[in-house]
Design a protein around this nucleic acid. Structure first.
Lengths: 202, 202
DNA sequence: TTGACAAGTGGAGACATCTCCGTTTATTAT
DNA sequence: ATAATAAACGGAGATGTCTCCACTTGTCAA
């Protein structure tokens, strides 16, 4: 066999793969050129030389397309977290939680437009009201574990699940951009404020 | 002069007022019949017997229409808060904060669809990224005052502004409905969890 | 090679939001 | 009354999301 292509063909036809690459390239170019929010799915389809139906066949909405564009970064992000936790497993959970928040804030900042794209169409477009992405669930699990480590009373688990939900709520595009642009805080200041609000609690 | 009508005319023509009432009646009927999310502005315009342009002339989007439908309730809600605070001004600030949260949760529950309508088009539709409604600012001010009362150190004001932002974030439709429908909590449970997360701290 | 079939395609069109602008109408000053 | 005028109107149409389905094309097995 030449390479992975043959087994790949079983799930994606070769012409389709080519189209997919053209979509991705076109989207990246247009997003960089005009900003994620300004670019419509129609525009992407037209510039990629395909019909709108073809585009929507692959990505059910703009959010899925955005997500595909950062999928690799998401994987790297979780690897970073893994590495960080291993290197710092002796630190107190408060510290490790803060470290994860910092990693997340930097990730969020680096992919700010695409993440907003993902969240926007997720909220407009969800069929099931409260469905969260696997990304959400994975982070949520990590946070809950750390909160549990901080407070060993089993009665607190419910509180910790809730607290993790609230913390993730605070990290959403809307809330984050509000702090960043209206309140005018820097990344570092937001980290401190999050720490004081959700972790320090003396 | 006959009465107040003349000065009123200066701000709203009589035929326009009639149309406005028809819009409101139609919207209420359709919202109750099909649910806020399912009803389009076009549908409202058609059923009210006016053109879409006329509807959009008065309400720049569905959110503004929803807001107009609960404006009276919002006023009542703030009066409730005022009365509550006056009757309980001797209680500790933690208690008063909890009381306000309870009033808010009940208000939110009673107008859940319309509030979601307001928030949805506010987030889709905002020209200025982080602009918050006056409703938001008013509540925010109340919360900050109570947090400040709980912690008199002036250095904490910044933290308290942030904490109030986070608390309001937690009370948004999205986060609230997630707790309600996915986590399966009752109003009372959400109140306790909010209290434990944002107020009790220690 | 070839035929069957699943995978992929494209574009018309259903619907929604929202704008633009020529036309109509209520009101007021004369 | 009537004319002037500002407010209100309505609907065509621009733009966007997303679906549907008749048609085309790769792939694989025979």
């Amino acid at each position: 066999m030449k390479d992975g292509k043959i087994s790949f063909t079983h799930t994606e036809r070769r012409d389709a793969a080519a189209n997919r690459q053209r979509i991705l390239d076109t989207a990246i170019r247009l997003f960089e050129q005009h900003g994620v929010e300004q670019v419509s799915m129609n525009q992407i389809a037209t510039e990629a030389g395909i019909g709108p139906g073809t585009l929507y066949r692959r990505y059910r909405n703009k959010g899925e397309l955005c997500l595909d564009l950062i999928k690799d970064n998401v994987v790297l992000f979780f690897e970073d977290i893994q590495a960080y936790l291993e290197h710092n497993h002796k630190e107190p959970p408060e510290q490790r939680l803060k470290g994860i928040l910092w990693l997340f804030l930097r990730f969020r900042e680096s992919k700010i437009q695409l993440l907003k794209g993902v969240e926007d169409s997720a909220s407009t477009n969800r069929k099931k009201p409260g469905t969260r992405s696997p990304l959400y669930d994975e982070l949520h699990g990590l946070l809950v574990d750390l909160f549990n480590e901080m407070n060993k009373e089993t009665a607190a688990v419910r509180n910790n699940i809730f607290k993790a939900d609230m913390l993730l709520e605070a990290l959403k595009s809307d809330a984050y951009l509000f702090q960043r642009e209206v309140r005018g805080y820097s990344l570092e200041e937001i980290l401190e404020l999050l720490y004081a609000t959700f972790i320090a609690h003396r």
